[in-house]
Design a protein around this nucleic acid. Sequence first.
DNA 1: GCATGATCATGC
DNA 2: GCATGATCATGC
Length: 461
Amino acid sequence: METKPYNPGDVASIFEYSKGILGHTLRDFVPVGYEARKGKGGLGEMVEEIFFGYDKNSNPEADFSIAGLELKCTPLKNSKKQELLIKERLVCGMIDYIEEAGKDFEHSHFYEKCRLMLLLFYLHLAQTDKLDLEFIYSVLWQLPEKDLLIIKQDYEIIHNKIVNGLAHTLSEGDTMYLGACRKGQKGEDTTKQYNSDIPAPTRAFCLKMAYMRTILDFVQKSGTNAICNYKLPKGEEAVSVDALKSKTFDSIIIDRFRPYLGKDEQTLARELKINLSADSKSKFYQLANAIAHEGKHSNINKSEEFQKAGLMMKTVRVQANGKIREAMSFENINYQEVYDNDEWLESRLYEIYSSRFLFVIFREQTPDVRDYVLDKVFFWTMPQEDLATAEDYWNNIRTCVVQNKIAPKYFWKAADNRNFHVRPKGRDSRDLVENPNGGKCRKYCYWFNNDYISKIVNSHA
DNA sequence: GCATGATCATGC
DNA sequence: GCATGATCATGC
């Protein structure tokens, strides 16, 4: 048997050896006359063959199966500011609905292969031969115990839908870290599912974008020599490991609100020991944050789990007449991002709108008295059909930005009644930002229309 | 009365 | 200084 420059049965040895590819492309190692593989998975196979000297023909088994290690190559991209960004969610195996229905988490393909991964981040460049892509980071990623608890809960949510013949209703927004993402030609392929005749879109297990970003964040902060298992540098934890052992993440959060349901602003402020300034525009958010975060001063949207999951808490006020007075704003449109990226599924807006939301509803008791009480709390994700509308919305925004038409008359308005609109959001009218077409322009942000929020709130008892 | 544009407190 | 999470304020 051929000797390798590393010990194929030893994780640490493989990891050490892998660092030799950093700053290089496969071209630096490729033998004369090597025939490049095609397709998306081709890069990983070529790394095994060319860099690790792995002979597929003599051993068709999984990557480094002796060491229990899964090799994954995953792309980064450069922003216009030359920052490295995650390009894609990490796909961790197609889901065969029929086969998966008979499994449990501990026997799932995901658990068996992805608990311990050697991640090789490379820089994606369009129209570039795979042999010429540069490898940037190598990280040995062992899913931390706490993440595994959440991922197991994610798996069970996905598995339940599969078993109940609801695979066609799966959505990446159903779950926290482990997602069931669409896969296949234009994301339109369907396949046979378990326990139902309804064809379901083909999907794969994946570690979602937000989770991948925290891995990249870890690598960049600790250097490529570090072996996983880390604490998120900023942001406190929302829930403890111990709590996750007996309850789901969702129920832990929801249960924190129960003792406060029906209570008004002043009572909540008193019980939560918060000094609210009367003219704060985000005082209901502050109250909700104190409840959800168990009195912690920090913003729960910045907590470890909310960040890793891309989960967002939003508060809504419902007037006594049942109407929602205010539309809901999201972050400012990053014109450069919109300008640079022409893929809806890779857009920041898609990430925001396909993420999970924790809605906290306050309801006015007496018309025009503003005596709001905490009314209800629920998790929500945007339905597929609304995401399709969101794609049109994003296409319009992108056209506006690319054609340098960054003004209200070109954007969707609330009056257009299409769920979403664009409106200013800045310190004041002189608050400007760089226009990718040159010069400066006003700040605008993404919004939900009032009636769209109404629909969401009313669909939850 | 509501859609649209304008603006604010806060925290990092 | 600026992003965040919003609400205010006015003109149609």
